[in-house]
């Protein structure tokens, strides 16, 4: 029976059907499937499928958002069960993300945050026009593995360097990794300011984040697709 139930969970997420996801979550509890297993074997594969479809250019951002909503609804049912059983979900990593000071562009940053969340990262989005000190505080508060810095303008991307300096000054580097992104940002820029990596697009940012928390990062130039 379990395969059928996993299939229903996966399909509910793929279809972006929150009602079906909630029903599947309840059914899994009734069937005695451990909640962690339901998440990892049932719902997450659905998210991965949708993420892959988006990365391939077959699906649209709203498909991702609907899938994430369905996932959230299932988690709302399963998380109390996890708590009751004193089980903690392992996260892929903790990420603090924001658009640097002086810059109010948020769409790219929001997209990266959303894709990271749906890929199993715990994401703390600080919003736009974020001062360097705020990044430092939040990274400390949330025990961040990664700080993600967005900038759309050539005039504001220097703010990424300022945040890295503030993190260094606070003694948080190199354990806290920094990834940078935004239209004017390049691998060369990431290297120049001492970031751990950059990605040209949001899907690449997820891959980069996975590599960074996996500890395999070796210098900015190696990260992200060649240009």
């Amino acid at each position: 029976m379990t395969e059928t139930e996993f299939q229903a969970m996966r399909q509910a997420v793929v279809d972006g059907d929150a009602d079906a996801a909630e029903a599947a979550a309840r059914a899994s509890i009734a069937a005695g499937i451990p909640p962690l297993v339901a998440i990892d074997e049932g719902f997450m594969p659905g998210m991965k499928e949708v993420g892959a479809g988006f990365a391939a250019g077959d699906l649209f951002l709203p498909d991702m958002m609907l899938a994430a909503r369905a996932m959230q609804r299932a988690l709302a049912v399963l998380e109390p069960e996890l708590k009751a059983a004193s089980v903690e979900r392992t996260v892929a990593g903790r990420v603090v993300i924001g658009t640097v000071a002086g810059d109010i562009h948020e769409i790219g940053k929001n997209l990266v945050g959303m894709l990271l969340s749906t890929s199993g990262f715990e994401v703390h989005d600080l919003g736009v026009n974020v001062a360097p000190e705020r990044f430092v505080e939040a990274a400390r508060e949330h025990r961040a593995d990664i700080v993600g810095l967005s900038a759309l303008l050539t005039t504001t991307m220097t703010g990424q360097r300022a945040v890295i300096a503030a993190l260094t000054e606070a003694g948080m580097r190199p354990p806290v990794k920094v990834m940078v992104g935004g239209a004017p940002v390049t691998g060369a820029w990431a290297e120049e300011i001492g970031a751990d990596g950059y990605s040209e697009d949001a899907m690449g940012a997820v891959e980069l984040a996975k590599r960074l928390v996996g500890g395999g990062a070796t210098g900015a130039g190696a990260e992200g697709p060649a240009r």
Partner: peptide, 14 residues
């Protein structure tokens, strides 16, 4: 005034 506007972000490629 603008003689353009009304575009949407491409929600497949962003």
């Amino acid at each position: 005034v603008p003689g353009f506007g009304g575009d949407s972000l491409d929600l497949r490629t962003m």
